[in-house]
Every structure is written in C-alpha cells, then in structure tokens.
Design a protein around this nucleic acid. Structure first.
Length: 814
RNA sequence: GCCGGGGUGGCGAAAUUGGUACACGCACUAGCUUCAGGAGCUAGCGGGGGCAACCCCAUGGAGGUUCGAAUCCUCUCCCCGGCACCA
C-alpha cells in the first residue's frame, strides 16, 4: 500500500529550504581531513544555466556529498565570472547598465543552482565584478608590475573590429575572434602584457606532475611549443651586418641554398639602400600584411616572396654564396624572424624552391628507407623532399656518416652556433578597450611617467558616467571623473589608463579567494589558502584548455615566487565533462533551436531525476546526445525507490533464509560497486547497479529487506539527495540522512559458496556448471565431462586442458 | 598535414582489464491490470537457421599473437576534438 505519491516539486523545495536555513553545507574549517573540490565558475549569461553546467556540477556534488559522509571537510564553493563582453554588448543595444543585467543574471543562476540541490557553501560566494573582489585583481596587477612581469609595449596585436577591442593570442581561433567569429586584424598598438613567457619552461615541465586529461596536457604542450635548435649567424657579403637565423635542423646546413627573412624583419629597413629592387620589395612588404589575412580566408597556401637583389649571404658551413629572400611564410614573431632554407629537407622550403627555381641539395639520407624507395634506388633525389628528422649525413665534408643528432652538436661546435630553445608561447596581452572589466590601476603623468596606483587608493572603481558605444577607445576615456586625476607622485594633473583587464585575469586567482572570500585587508590570508590549496579536484569544460587553465597556472607560479603561496600548481586533478549535444546530435545552440532548458526538466520531472539522468547518460568525459524520452527511465527508478520505502512501512515481514542471504550479498556488492564508482567518477555504472539492487529488493521478502532499503537510500543519497532525505525522514530514522556514515562492506559477504564455471571446447562456450568455490582442476574436469552439451564436442583426442580457478575450464581437442 | 580521443544492438551504453559480448536504461512487441492513461506488472527483444532442444555468424574492415581477443600487435577505412606555414 502506497501511503503517498512521489511529488518532487514539494519535497525538493522543502529540503532546499532546510539546507539554506540550517547552513548544512557550510564547511567546518577545523576538521583535520580536508578536500577542495572546485567547479569552474560560470559566466552569468542571460540564457541561464546550460545542461552542460548541470552535468559537471552534479558530478562534483555527488562526490562532495559522498566525501562529507566519510567525515571529510569539503570546500565546495560557487561564484560568478561576472565581467565580460555580453553584458556590455547588451548595454550598447538597450542602454541598460551592464551591472544591472549582470546582477539579475546572477540572481537567476543562483536560483537555478539551488533548485538543483547543489551543496555549495554559499557563505563563500564571490563575484569578480564586485569592487571587493576586483580591488584584489588590481592589487595582483600591481604585484606583477613591481616584479617586472606586467609591462607595456607597442606591438602588432589582434584587433576585433566587431568587439572593438584587442584580443590575446589564445582568443584568436583560425584568425577569428573566439567570441563573435569576426576576422581579426593586425594593428600596431601600445598595450599591457603579462610576461607568461618567463614561465614557459616551468609551465611545460610541470604538466607531467598533473593528473589531467591527456588531451588538455597535449594542447598545453603544443601551445607552449618548445623546440630546441641553434642560432647561426650568416654573413652578408660585402656588408658589416649579419643575419641571425634559428633552426632545429642544423644537421642540414650543408643543404641550405638560400635565406628567408620575415617581411617585417628589422634588417630589411637597415639595408634598403643596398637592395637593388627596393620598390618591388617595399610593395611586397605592404601587401603581405593584407595578404596573410585574405589568404587565410581563402585557405590559399601558395608561397610568395621577393628576392633581395644585390644582397648575398655566405653559408658558414661551406662558404657557398646564397641568395636572400623575404617571404611571409616566415614569421617575425617566432625564433629570430629569419631562416636558412633547406628545400631538400623541409616541406615549406621545398615548395618555395620549386616555385622560384632554387637549387635543392640533399645532404641527409633517411634512417629508414622505405621499400618502394630501396626498390627504385634513390628516386627521391630528383623530385621529392626527405622530411624525416633523423638520418645519416653525406656531402657534408668531415660530418659525413654522422647521424642527424650527432651532427647537430658537432656542427654547432665547429660554427660556434648557440644552442637555444624557442617557444611558441607569446606574452599574454591583457588590455581591453572595453568598459565592463577591472580597470588597469595605472596613471600616466607627463613629468613622472607611468605611475602605478598606490595600493591604498585601490580599488580603482568603474565610473558610472559612461557612454558604452564602442569607438575603438575604451569607454572610460569619456568619463571625466575617471580619466582625469592628480599624479600620486607629484600632484600635477595626470590621466588614468583607460583600458580594462582581460576577464581571464579575474579567473586566474578566484580559487584562492574562495579560501578567504571576505578578507578586506588582503587578497587572501596565506594560512587559509595553505590549509585548502592546491585544489584537489577541478571539473569543468575542455574549452578552457589553453586559456584559463594556462593563465591560472601562470598566476600560481608567480604568487609562489612572490612568497604568498607555497605550491606551484593550482589544480592537481582535472576532469572535463563532455559536451551534451542536442537531440539531433548537433551542438546545442539557440540558432539550431535544440537547446534544453534545465528549468523545464526540473519542473516536469524534478531535480533528482535531472541529476540522475545526466549522470546515467554515459561516462562523464564523453560527449553524448540528449534524449528526453530516456529521462522517464530514471524517473521510474526513483518512483520505484519511493514505493519500496513507503510500502515498507506497512508491509508484513516474513522470513526466508536463502533470500536474506542473497539480499545481504547484493547489499555488500552494491555498496562496494557504488563506492568505487564514485571514487573513479563512473557515475553511470553506479546508477545501474543501484537500479539492479532495487529490483532485487523488490522481488525479495524477509527481515533483511529493511536493512537493504536503508542501505539503498544512503547509497543513492549523493545522486538524489531530496528523495532520499524525504524517505529517510518518513522511515522515522534518527537524524538526517546526510549525517549518516557512508557504509563499509565486508569482503567476506561477497564470497559465494557456489560458483558458475564456464566450460569451453576449443575456446567456444559449451556449458556452464555449478561448482563449489576453490575446487581443483581434476574435480571440475570430471563434472564438466559429465555435461552432455560438452561431451558432444569432446569426440576427438584432448590435447590440453586450461583451467582458470573458479572461472573457466577449456578443453583443447584436435 | 600533425597531435589527441573514438568506432560494440534501433538508441544511450556495460563488459571483473585477455576468460559466458550486449549488464542497466530508452524505444519496440505480446499478455495481464485499469473507466482511462504519456501509469503499473509479466514476458520477449543482435543477425541467420530450426516446431524445438540446439547450431552457425557477430564488437568499422583485413591480417596476426593466444587454448581463448571488443580488449594485445600490424596494416587500413571512417567519425569527433585540438593545432595548423612555429623553421
């Protein structure tokens, strides 16, 4: 007899209110065992929470609720990455102040997160757009500035004309703005940078210490892009100047047949009088700036370039003369902006040489000569390049017969070339010509120059009297109250820096602020941070692989060097939730109309069902399509648990020894499986075993049933906290369910007296037989041979018998 | 092109890590129950053959190792994600 109906809306509101009122999840800092479990905090968009957020947040919530029942103090906070362009763009359109919209969105996000029953310690909520927070973001800027890690320079930067601001390299994807997909232009601008390149080597090395997904580690490695090689100076004939090139293939220097400079290379302007075809060269330089952009669009990769007529370089290896070109396939910003071209052994040089009819000289045979090549001799000499990195040298004077790697060292020594390391990583451009961000705390004084805002004057508040219309200059320029100040040093009129900081600066240290969120004396108390950090477990989307995750690592290393913290990596273990695709298998997007709104699912099925469904869909890290009709399955399961527990209250108890033993086994087995699955984040299989367990309970009678149901409720609690809290109370148990200790299991309960042994003949399953545990081979063999199903196939001579104890016996017959 | 991750029923997915392939759930089919149901219960549900017991085939494809392969090795095809003239 069911004494009531499962009504999620009612019970979920009830328990959420209680958790709020009793501050159930406020972390006890005094406990000895501490774990910091962190979610990537959301940007509070107008669209509200995405089902993808729900997935990651449910995973950590399950883990945290489980840990607390094990008696561990869990820091599990939430906050808002509240600065950013969308709010400002909305302000431009509607005239609403970005703060108003942002604060509204935050209220909505908070409501949604609470409606899902996530167990955050809300007393630690932070907001990066709150002056109480960004004061310390500005303070951190000043720390970097004093350490020489924040600097200003004029450089070609990525400009998005639609967003009307510059972008960091990390925010440019295939030449497009990551936000609006507008083509990015190159502009010369004076901007603020953080010297992340200073940490390139450590950022690369320490990746090996992290328990992170392989693809994220790989992406960061590629992004940092370390390559070891050598710098070699090439003399220019009859000139005093030398050209310094960088190469990773010094072993091929005897095959170098020309040099190439990037069009922006400084030497070109210095040598302009010596270049016979200057007008042509100048034209190419001008065109190349436009061309890179246009060509990317059209994906034309044909090599272009111009020879610097009148200039000849000398190959230091063999003293041969070689022409010099400029070409835009060589980048100014990498290496020395100049290369030696070895068409025989570099694909790009090969293409260029073919187009311009330049000599191709082979000096390395590949170590592994493929079958077709050995059959046809050395046909690659005539029309193909040899691009393998290792081989044996020939035609290289005293270096003949050496392997590539030996040759690199020996040639470097002879030429006096400097062995160096280069990185692809560039310094982090943090200036943004926008309003809705933390102002850069710098004042420009005509007499004193660049003056950092004194710490006592922080925060530099965002002014209210602003016009948001983007003009290419920061909107802050228009605010007289903001712009004009007195120089803190000499007191004469001066003006503020008008740009704001990239919002990734805000999120590079937020995990530290959670440890001490209300501190108004310092960014954080080092002792408090030391008691929680580094973050033990971090969960979020993979889209932050080379942005947030790299920047936060950089900040951590800087703060360690400044002595504020004692660890050098912020996030020890990282997992990415996979994308949840729309029902059509496509990425969810407004324009496709396949977006699922979590509010609607909660309303229709309840928060516990949504949580459970998202965990049941498949492995956390896989991307998987949404399927609304499947939700009913987990809802049915919860209904079943409801009936199981509420029927129990009125049910007559009977006794049945065999069923009781079976139930005890299942109870122990489920406990073990759910525990190990939560530990390893395999929530989908944890749920399926809970389903099986409830089915077993349903079909069992006996006194053990009460115990089994209570165990089921506790194991299910982290996944479906509202339902289980309610049922625990209905059963008249003492205390709340979350105050229970996570169950242990006895390994002996998992031992069965009888086992089923698979009988195979020649590896094919023919029967299964019941045996008692630990039986020896002879006994099992005897029983197996008695099986008619098996005997049928044992007509030939038995050559061999393979026996795996308690599991399998295999007869090999002829 | 390079790097990373994958291909298992109609669908989402399991598989004790080399030992009964398809657990759990959705969808579907049949029956029961109900005034009714987008509810519940029972049974079936990879393909082929057979009345049946049972037999054969099957984890993208082709080989190989092994008593035994979704799992290990070689080659190959396809999908997803990232990077893309970085010398």
């Amino acid at each position: 007899m069911t004494d009531s109906k499962y009504e999620p809306a009612k019970i979920e509101a009830k328990w959420q209110a209680l958790w709020d009122k009793e501050r159930t999840f406020k972390v006890e800092e005094t406990k000895k065992d501490k774990i910091y479990v962190l979610d990537m905090f959301p940007y509070p968009s107008a669209q509200g929470l995405h089902v993808g957020h729900v997935e990651g947040y449910t995973a950590t919530d399950i883990y945290c609720r489980y840990l607390r029942m094990k008696g561990i103090a869990v820091l599990h906070p939430m906050g808002w990455d509240a600065f950013g362009l969308p709010a400002e763009n909305y302000a431009i359109k509607t005239g609403t102040h970005p703060q108003k919209l942002t604060w509204q969105n935050i209220d909505n996000y908070r409501r949604q997160l609470k409606s899902l029953g996530f167990s955050y310690d809300w007393s630690r909520e932070i907001n990066t757009a709150d002056p109480a927070y960004y004061k310390w973001t500005q303070w951190l800027f000043l720390q970097l500035y004093e350490k020489g890690l924040a600097y200003q320079k004029t450089a070609p930067v990525n400009w998005c004309s639609s967003c009307q601001t510059v972008l960091a390299n990390e925010q440019v994807i295939n030449g497009e703005c990551e936000r609006c997909h507008n083509q990015v232009e190159q502009r010369q601008m004076k901007q603020w940078f953080f010297k992340i390149t200073e940490y390139a080597d450590e950022l690369l090395k320490d990746l090996d210490k992290l328990d992170w997904p392989a693809n994220i580690v790989e992406m960061q490695k590629n992004w940092i892009g370390k390559s070891t090689g050598a710098e070699v100076e090439f003399k220019i004939k009859k000139q005093k100047l030398k050209i310094k090139i960088f190469t990773t293939r010094l072993d091929t220097i005897f095959g170098a047949t020309y040099l190439v400079l990037a069009p922006e290379h400084k030497l070109i302007q210095q040598l302009r009088n010596k270049i016979n075809n200057w007008p042509e060269v100048e034209k190419y330089i001008k065109e190349s700036q436009k061309r890179t952009e246009l060509e990317r669009k059209a994906e034309i990769k044909e090599k272009t370039g111009v020879r610097l007529k009148g200039l000849v370089a000398i190959n230091p290896a063999n003293q041969e003369e070689m022409p010099i070109f400029i070409a835009d396939y060589v980048l100014t910003s990498y290496g020395t902006g100049a290369i030696m071209a070895v068409p025989a052994h570099d694909e790009r040089d090969f293409e260029f040489a073919k187009k311009f009819g330049l000599p191709i000289k082979y000096v390395v045979t590949p170590a592994k000569v493929s079958v077709s090549q050995s059959k046809t001799g050395v046909h690659w000499l005539s029309n193909q390049g040899v691009f393998e990195e290792d081989g044996v040298l020939y035609g290289c004077e005293e270096f003949n017969g050496l392997s590539s790697s030996d040759a690199r060292h020996k040639i470097a020594k002879k030429l006096g070339a400097k062995l160096t390391t280069k990185y692809r990583l560039r310094d982090w451009l943090i200036s943004r010509q926008r309003y809705w961000g933390a102002p850069i705390p710098i004042i420009y004084c005509e007499t004193c120059g660049i003056i950092p805002v004194p710490v006592k004057d922080l925060p530099v508040l965002l002014p209210e009297d602003v016009d948001f219309k983007p003009t290419g200059e920061s909107p802050l320029v228009k605010s007289q109250s903001f712009h004009q100040v007195k120089c803190p040093k000499c007191g004469l009129p001066a003006h503020r820096e008008n740009d704001t900081m990239d919002t990734f600066v805000d999120s590079s240290w937020y995990f530290l602020r959670y440890c001490d969120p209300q501190n108004n004396q310092e960014a954080f108390n080092p002792k408090k941070v030391a008691s929680w950090c580094p973050v033990n477990f971090y969960v979020g989307g993979a889209e932050h692989a080379v942005m947030h995750l790299l920047y936060a690592r950089f900040f951590t290393k800087v703060l360690a060097d400044l002595g504020y913290i004692k660890f050098r990596e912020p996030f020890l273990k990282l997992r990415n939730q996979g994308l949840i695709l729309g029902e059509d298998g496509q990425k969810m997007s407004k324009s496709r109309g396949n977006v699922i709104n979590p509010d609607e699912i909660v309303e229709q099925y309840g928060a516990d069902t949504l949580r459970l469904y998202e965990m049941f869909m498949g492995p956390l890290e896989d991307s998987k399509p949404w399927n609304t009709s499947s939700i009913i399955g987990v809802r049915r399961f919860l209904e079943k648990v409801w009936r199981l527990a509420t029927d129990l209250i009125t049910e007559q108890q009977t006794n049945n020894k065999a069923e009781e033993a079976n139930l005890a086994y299942w109870s122990a087995y489920t406990t073990k499986k759910v525990t190990t699955d939560i530990e390893s984040f395999n929530f989908n299989t944890a749920i399926s075993i809970l389903m099986e367990f409830s089915n077993v309970i349903l079909t069992t009678a006996g006194a053990e049933k009460v115990k089994a149901i209570k165990n089921l409720l506790i194991l299910l609690y982290p996944f479906a906290p509202h339902l289980t809290s309610e049922l625990w109370e209905k059963l008249g148990e003492r205390g709340y369910i979350w105050q229970q200790v996570w169950p242990a299991w006895q390994e002996e309960s998992l031992i069965k007296e009888n086992v089923k042994i698979i009988v195979q003949v020649n590896g094919k399953v023919r029967d299964t037989i019941d045996c008692s545990l630990g039986m020896d081979q002879a006994a099992v063999e005897r029983i197996a041979k008695q099986s008619i199903k098996v005997a049928k196939f044992l007509t030939g001579k038995i050559l061999k018998v393979i026996y795996v104890k308690d599991r399998l016996i295999n007869f090999v017959v002829e």
